[in-house]
Design a binder for these strands. Structure first.
Lengths: 212, 212
DNA sequence: TGTACATCAGTGAACGCGCGTTCACTGATGTAC
DNA sequence: TGTACATCAGTGAACGCGCGTTCACTGATGTAC
């Protein structure tokens, strides 16, 4: 019992500040969005002076970047868990998992893809984490292509299309832009299916270049 | 010449404050994003006291909403200008125009679709303007469907897919998330084409429900 | 086993900043008779 | 044509706020001998 860290807390050396700050910031982010995160308020709630946080975070933006990193890692974890047996099922499921992540973590997702809050090329770990999640998507597509399941278009094109559609659907739904959109995941599956099978009616296929 | 308003400026009654404030705010938005817009700074630059702005804007958020409204109107104007002769060409072109708008006005686009900055249901004019732009997209799809060009899936589904893909591509490119993405508009056209014609290889079609 | 010392992780005070918004007001303008 | 009056569009001062960050510091901890 004397070795229980909780009992040994001296309250001077906190011992767990970075983790606790990270967690609390994540909670605030989830509930109120990135703009609601302030280092002073964070310190206040933890019961520590504001400058103490600077022992563990370079500045406010680094903390936000850390949150985004864990977001990308969580997203990646969920994506890699998708069963890859069937190329088609894998493609659909990875999209569904992606959209569902965004919908369950809208504020985290916004931070991850915000763009103006955390610009590219400033936080190496963040860029790397983003690439990691992206990679899973790309690998899945590459496998389906190698198996001859999807068309032999450039991988980067196919990936851009797939990512665009799930990212767009995520953003639109979490921001409430899709009017009267019936709820998930039927909509998501329908949308992804359209990208796979196409939107053009069958008898119209191969008439693509009919006008000059 | 005595009637020239510019000559009559008394500098007390400014005569053009709302328009000038709107324009300057738009310039700042374009260059530095929505967070850079401050009513005090705006007033300062115009040469007027800060409270003067409150004669014309309820509060800061209303001004932002106004900017977003003009953004949606500009987007709509460009979308309705698309030639509707060929269903296929119209679908592609409307997507290209959409993406190109986002890429030329990234900060305005972000404000329009930001979500957390300007929530839905608070600014009626904004909601209406957003619907107006959306409507053009939906109408184009409806026409193509009535002409039998696209599959007879629910209009809301097809619209969600189309909007998702152009919105997603817009967001990803303006935030620099597409790695090594060759420049526009080839990428955009390729992506849209995939949604129209499908991604699944031809010999694989109609094997969609192969596993239980 | 005890002690000197380096290092780590906190502290309080302060700098410098700018913001949105409200208040009571005044100067300018337009209008009715 | 002149004047009283309502209304409009500004003003300066102030409220209340909170922020990120730096500074010189001190208390706690771990380590070498």
């Amino acid at each position: 019992m004397p070795d229980n860290p909780a009992t040994l807390k001296t309250n001077y050396h906190h011992g767990d500040l970075p983790q606790q700050a990270h967690q609390l910031a994540l909670d605030i982010l989830r509930e109120h969005g990135d703009t609601a995160i302030s280092l002073r308020a964070l310190a206040r709630q933890i019961g520590v002076s504001a400058p103490a946080l600077y022992r563990h975070f370079i500045d406010r933006e680094s903390l936000l970047a850390e949150l985004a990193v864990t977001g990308f890692e969580a997203l990646r974890d969920r994506l890699v868990a998708v069963d890859q047996t069937s190329p088609r099922r894998a493609l659909i499921d990875i999209g569904l998992v992606y959209v569902s992540f965004a919908q369950h973590e809208p504020n985290l997702y916004r931070l991850m893809f915000g763009g103006r809050v955390l610009p590219k090329g400033v936080h190496p770990r963040l860029d790397k984490a983003g690439k990691g999640a992206f990679q899973v998507l790309e690998d899945t597509i590459a496998r389906a292509r190698d198996a001859g399941y999807v068309k032999p278009v450039p991988l980067s094109l196919m990936t851009a299309a797939a990512w665009s559609i799930v990212h767009g659907l995520s953003q639109l739904t979490i921001d409430g832009h899709l009017p009267g959109a019936e709820v998930e995941p039927q909509l998501a599956e329908g949308v992804i299916t359209l990208l796979l099978d196409g939107s053009v009616a069958d008898q119209q296929q191969n008439h693509k270049d009919s006008n000059p």
